[in-house]
């Protein structure tokens, strides 16, 4: 589904991604781990099309389409969803209104009729239940005054509404207590199908207790330096990142 080849990206003059290679198939969950500053969030942002980053070389294909050629909104419409590490506040715009606009924009792109109010409400109720979110939260201005947990839960609700092909969760566990973490993870698990894929970007192994990855990749200095299964995550939890850093640094010297 997703194929990243030799991806390099920089912000201003600083090269952050230095040759990422990654293949993600439908039905898979991939975890991207790594120490702070290794380029995890940059990778998520580059895939979503944030303009602060400049891709200097490499290719990214989603189902055979060149993702890097598409505008951020078209990437979203093609099925890329980014759950933000720091969800943005939009005063005066309720999540309901925001989602209604988003869902219909995506439908229009796909040549579908806009959704009428009744069907939209029905869909919303269904998804609300799935991710255990309260309607009162959705009526409030988007992310304004939300707690950390509410913001992340709201991201997962949006993901449920948009039913993405590829969901990228950027440090979704940061700032969550254990109960909120469980609810968010449950939501993500329920949304998993044989046709979609998830990339979980995280610093800690904790989230992976709930969202079990098929593959774990360790990012360091802009490259994937080690890949494995969930056991790798356990090992990292136990030993920290230093041994991987040492290994990787030894190779590059």
């Amino acid at each position: 589904m997703l194929s990243i080849k030799n991806l390099h990206a920089r912000i201003e003059e600083k090269e952050i991604l230095r040759g990422i290679n990654l293949e993600v198939k439908a039905g898979e969950v991939h975890a991207i781990m790594g120490p702070n500053g290794s380029g995890k969030s940059t990778l998520a942002s580059v895939l979503a099309g944030r303009s602060d980053y400049e891709v200097t070389s490499g290719t990214v294909q989603l189902n055979g389409k060149d993702l890097l050629d598409l505008s951020p909104e078209d990437r979203a419409r093609e099925g890329v969803f980014l759950a933000f590490q720091y969800p943005i506040e939009i005063p005066g715009v309720s999540t309901i209104n925001f989602m209604k606009t988003a869902v219909n924009e995506v439908r229009e792109y796909r040549g579908q009729e806009p959704m009428d109010a009744v069907s939209f409400l029905k869909l919303m109720k269904e998804k609300m239940k799935l991710v255990e979110i309260d309607e009162s939260l959705l009526k409030r201005a988007l992310n304004e005054g939300f707690s950390g947990g509410e913001k992340k839960r709201n991201e997962i609700f949006q993901m449920a509404m948009l039913e993405p092909m590829l969901a990228i969760l950027d440090e979704t566990d940061s700032g969550l207590d254990i109960d909120a973490l469980r609810i968010v993870a449950n939501g993500v698990n329920k949304l998993k199908t044989a046709n979609n894929a998830t990339i979980v970007v995280t610093h800690y192994q904790r989230l992976l207790d709930y969202i079990v990855p098929d593959f774990v990749h360790v990012l360091y200095k802009g490259r994937i330096v080690k890949s494995g299964t969930k056991e790798l995550a356990m090992e990292l939890e136990e030993k920290g990142y230093d041994w991987i850093k040492a290994e990787a640094d030894a190779q590059t010297v």
Binding site: A48, G49, R50, S51, S71, P72, E73, R75, A76, R77, F81, L82, F84, P87, I88, E89, I90, P91, G92, V93, N97, F98, M99, T101, A102, E105, V106, Y109, A141, Q158, L162
Partner: peptide
Amino acid sequence: QIFYCNQRGIATEKAVALIVNGY
């Protein structure tokens, strides 16, 4: 804010309208 809207499939023009109306 605009990027957040874009990432949900909302084009920039519509995003600005949405943000302004909210404001």
